[in-house]
Nucleic acid binder design. Structure first.
Lengths: 248, 248
DNA sequence: GCTTGTGTGCGCGTTTATGCGCGTTAGATT
DNA sequence: AATCTAACGCGCATAAACGCGCACACAAGC
């Protein structure tokens, strides 16, 4: 088995289960724990998974709960995520100019995006841009200051660049989704980028699993009515009925 | 069997299986591992497959090791490069606004740069920005289209951003250094970025090992007198005597 | 017929991946 | 808070994979 394949297998296992332990991986792949640890280190650096004491968890699990233990292990509705991304990717039309927000959910989206020559993708994340470019897509990056934690670009340069663009459609992640408080995120600078990028986009989509409904993060970046939510899973009845919520 | 057919066969095998090892291919095609490796190199350069340690995978699966290995590829003139970078890094003063060009030599430079709170680094390379950010430096990225091969940003957005900046000092790499033809590079778009960034910089430094002297690449981005060259090793006598060449 | 160029195989020194041992560290238990 | 146990990171050894230079074979062109 190729080392590369092993890495990919680990990523799938982590994403499917939400979290796995080192011995589990070692056993499943027929290598020692040392090798697994090294693999996890590699994948962590590549932002494919989050390495934690005892094993690894998927990215958003580590992002939402700063708690870095393996103790609680629940299924992360990963099938949901896949379906959400597949549905969202199908909305990209030929000849369009598409905005991709930073974040782990939109990173997953990239794997589903169509390889159309005529489509240009613009993003505020250097990580996303690299993934797009490696997959052979036309990738444009906003300028600005690079935030090390999220690999996202913020500041006046990012905003100034956005002012020159107008997108056919765009995809954003959101930490909180609530009818009254709208779409919210923890970081004030990233919120600005989200807000301005939405203002320049015709068709706006927020992609998120059902767990974000009813949650509120510190900074609002859009009203609930400003975007269509693409989601899956146990959506509260209140939201399920709304006409800008698509449940797949 | 024609070499061309063999290449096509490899591509189909890779795409069908997802990944294959070098011995598998050598066995299936009746040639030695050396030939397979050469083929994989060719196909990798043509972006038809992704060459990885041990074999090859289809492009879709590749994104794990690839992102990192492209970057960290070191070369021959190691000792010289270290000295050049150390010397160059010492030129960065507190309170300054510094431009870092893309390229492998300038990437090495980043490891030597001082961790001054008051210094902001600007670069046209997402890779360089990531390294700067990881090391805790303030990193700003130009906007623009991302070239997959070099991870550099080019195009009107990059140039427009540069027009708003004025740097105290900057460091560039160069593929060719010649008294008459000046500093040259193979890529016309990257040459533009180099040219404009130089125009907005007070103290300009080209860092390069001695092997580039006398070489001429297709596109010129500056006159020989426009920058001070920091170099090491066997510099031709003609250049060694010049007052804008520093040999360490 | 001779030269030139390209593709292939082989040998060899170098790099990379993996497993193992050991001292250290982080969570869990009491 | 003290203690215990499992996980961890690091260094080292080994084996596989790698890249490079060279030699040879074959084809095309002068």
């Amino acid at each position: 088995m190729l080392a590369e394949d092993r890495l990919n297998t680990i990523v799938s296992m982590v994403q499917q289960a939400g979290s796995v332990t080192v011995p589990e991986l070692a056993d499943a792949l027929g290598v020692t724990a040392s090798t697994i640890r090294r693999d996890l280190q590699t994948l962590d650096r590549a932002h494919r998974i989050a390495k934690v004491h005892g094993g690894a968890t998927s990215l958003e699990r580590a992002h939402v709960t700063r708690d870095l233990t393996i103790s609680e292990r629940s299924d992360l509705h990963n099938d949901d995520k896949e379906r959400i991304c597949a549905r969202a990717a199908a909305l990209v039309e030929p000849e369009s100019f598409v905005y991709i927000d930073s974040g782990s959910t939109t990173l997953r989206l990239i794997e589903h995006l169509p390889h159309l020559e005529s489509v240009t993708y613009v993003t505020d994340s250097v990580l996303h841009a690299q993934h797009l470019a490696v997959r052979g897509m036309r990738a444009v990056v906003l300028g600005g200051e690079l935030k090390p934690e999220t690999e996202a670009l913020v500041g006046p340069d990012a905003l100034a660049t956005l002012d020159r663009y107008n997108f056919n459609c765009g995809f954003w992640g959101s930490n909180g989704i609530a009818a009254e408080q709208g779409f919210t995120t923890p970081d004030i600078e990233e919120a600005q980028v989200k807000r301005i990028s939405m203002r320049h986009t015709a068709k706006r989509f927020v992609i998120s699993d059902a767990s974000k409904f009813g949650m509120v993060a510190p900074v609002k970046f859009a009203d609930f009515r400003d975007a269509t939510v693409i989601t899956a899973g146990e959506v509260p009845a209140k939201y399920r009925a709304m006409d800008n919520v698509i449940t797949v």
